[in-house]
Design a binder for these strands. Structure first.
Length: 299
DNA sequence: GTCTCATGGACAT
DNA sequence: TGTCCCTGAGACG
């Protein structure tokens, strides 16, 4: 899935291309027909992200709440006006990765294409369209219900509001759960997924099994700051890159070798720092990638 | 064609 | 801790 950085980019994108526009809302797949009818014809007034949750606010105080889950994705298309307004370029697909669809014919936009596959929701403005597929959550809720969703989420490092760092540090230190599990707990920190979890623990040289309450206040705050920094890079780049440029091939941004990560999906390969083999272990149902040499033996 | 896996999370047990 | 849901891509026959 899109971790928090992708959802933030999506919020920007909806703000840029659809805010202030009356939208036709439909569910080509049919599964969201009732929800679509509640929104159809209304104007998008605001677009917000918190962690992995996206909230599209409409002029009648109803909110489209979307969580992409593992497989969800949005894609976009439109005319020159739409593409010009887009912050991420359109047409685009934003899901597990961002793709540019180069079969788009800029010149003669004829409206949205025939829906392909299972399109849960389609939004259409005068200038463009957006399709949602495969989301875990897609629901029309009230403003109060949206606030309730926010209330059960932890601080979002991409917002990084005053007090968030302390709240995160306190959340870590209050529990004896392994720090690798706490980073995936959206009540502790919102927006981190399996890639950022593994990469940030490596960057901070933290043993994934270290209990939260064994971290010092300083270590917890550094973990927050590094997560905020690397996720902000992800918002800028539109992809998760956690390694510094020294590891990339000369030239463009990450060509041939793909050296974007330190440990994620690199099991068995030599660690970029200590050259020992990167390991993968199951932790609460997910795969945890880490370097025993750097993150355990060194402790 | 069929199977497996994936950057989640809710719920039951 | 296990099970189920959402969809599509790639590996395999």
């Amino acid at each position: 899935m899109p971790e928090g950085h992708s959802v933030r980019r999506l919020a920007h994108q909806f703000g840029d291309v659809f805010t202030g526009e009356a939208l036709s809302v439909s569910s080509p797949q049919g599964r969201f027909a009732a929800g679509a009818a509640l929104l159809d014809g209304h104007t998008l007034t605001d677009s917000r992200a918190h962690g992995k949750h996206l909230f599209l606010h409409f002029d009648h105080a109803m909110v489209l709440h979307v969580h992409l889950g593992l497989y969800g994705a949005w894609d976009f298309g439109g005319d020159a006006t739409f593409r010009g307004a887009s912050s991420i370029g359109a047409p685009r697909k934003v899901g597990e990765q961002e793709l540019f669809d180069d079969d788009g014919d800029d010149g003669d936009y004829q409206g949205p294409p025939e829906p392909r596959g299972a399109v849960r929701v389609r939004l259409v403005s005068a200038h463009g369209w957006a399709d949602l597929r495969g989301a875990t959550t897609c629901a029309v809720i009230t403003e109060a219900e949206a606030l309730a969703v926010l209330a059960r989420l932890g601080p979002d490092p991409l917002r990084n509001l005053p007090g968030d760092r302390s709240r995160f540090a306190a959340g870590l230190q209050a529990r004896k759960t392994p720090v690798a599990a706490l980073l995936m707990d959206q009540k502790v920190i919102a927006g981190v997924g399996n890639v950022y979890r593994a990469e940030v623990l490596f960057r901070q040289q933290l043993d994934p099994w270290l209990p939260g309450n064994a971290l010092s206040r300083g270590a917890a705050e550094l973990l927050w700051d590094d997560t905020a920094a690397v996720m902000a890079d992800g918002v800028r780049d539109g992809r998760i890159i956690t390694t510094p440029a020294v590891y990339w091939d000369a030239g463009a941004l990450l060509p041939a070798g793909e050296h974007a990560h330190y440990v994620y999906k690199r099991e068995g390969l030599p660690c970029r720092v200590c050259a020992g083999p990167v390991a993968v272990t199951g932790l609460v149902g997910r795969k945890l990638y880490w370097c025993p040499g750097c993150q355990q033996d060194a402790q």
